[in-house]
């Protein structure tokens, strides 16, 4: 199995996630999509740990760290969402327009 196939799979998942991040109205779905993108990156790491130039298990170690950070990110993201929802009583991303100058 060439490494390119795994990389392509990662790219596909990443792009689907990216599309979701950019278009989904629901902020929870945006968080989902971010998780998907992180997973796509993990596939790359693991694929290189098997088929890389100096292939070894270190790639898996980094995947572990990524999963950990992603879990923390999901928890904090959901918490932020709650706070926002309490203040604005909506969870739709396009309703948050305070970035406008």
């Amino acid at each position: 199995m060439p490494v390119s196939s795994y990389l392509a799979l990662g790219a596909i998942l990443f792009c689907v996630g990216l599309y979701g991040v950019l278009t989904k109205r629901n902020a929870v779905m945006v968080l989902f999509s971010i998780e998907l993108m992180l997973n796509a990156a993990n596939i790359n790491l693991v694929a290189f740990s098997k088929y890389g130039l100096y292939a070894n298990q270190t790639g898996q170690v980094f995947t572990l760290f990524t999963i950990t950070v992603a879990a923390a990110e999901a928890a904090v993201g959901i918490a932020i969402l709650f706070a926002l929802y309490r203040n604005r009583s909506t969870a739709e991303a396009d309703r948050f327009q305070s970035l406008k100058g």
Partner: peptide
């Protein structure tokens, strides 16, 4: 864990079931 967390998120923030895309 994460899926369940998200499910909680959905349940706690949404009144309607459908997304408005």
């Amino acid at each position: 864990a994460v899926s369940i967390l998200m499910l909680f998120g959905i349940m706690l923030t949404r009144h309607r079931d459908e997304t408005r895309d």
